[in-house]
């Protein structure tokens, strides 16, 4: 498996906190496929800056509240 990028995220937790939002609903909200959301959640893909901002806006948070850098 490819080395995971050192970017962490709380997307799964945030979806749960937002009325168990589905991966499909989040994918549709930011304009990507459900598989891309799955890949982001699993740390297999680092989203573009634009998608990171879009995801953060869905949850009414800042980018750094959703994504972190694994030290």
């Amino acid at each position: 498996m490819a080395k995971a990028p050192p970017i962490t995220n709380r997307i799964r937790d945030l979806r749960e906190q937002h009325g168990s939002m589905s991966q499909s609903a989040l994918a549709e909200a930011i304009g990507v496929t459900r598989q891309t959301i799955i890949a982001i959640e699993l740390g297999k893909y680092s989203p573009s800056l634009e998608s990171a901002f879009r995801i953060a806006r869905v949850f009414d948070l800042g980018v750094e509240d959703v994504f972190g850098w694994e030290a």
């Binding site: 304009g31 990507v32 496929t33 598989q35 891309t36 890949a39 893909y45 989203p47 573009s48 998608s51």
Partner: peptide, 11 residues
């Protein structure tokens, strides 16, 4: 639906 959708950034 998937067939008609354009490729996203990861794809």
């Amino acid at each position: 639906r998937e067939a008609n959708a354009p490729a996203d950034e990861r794809e």
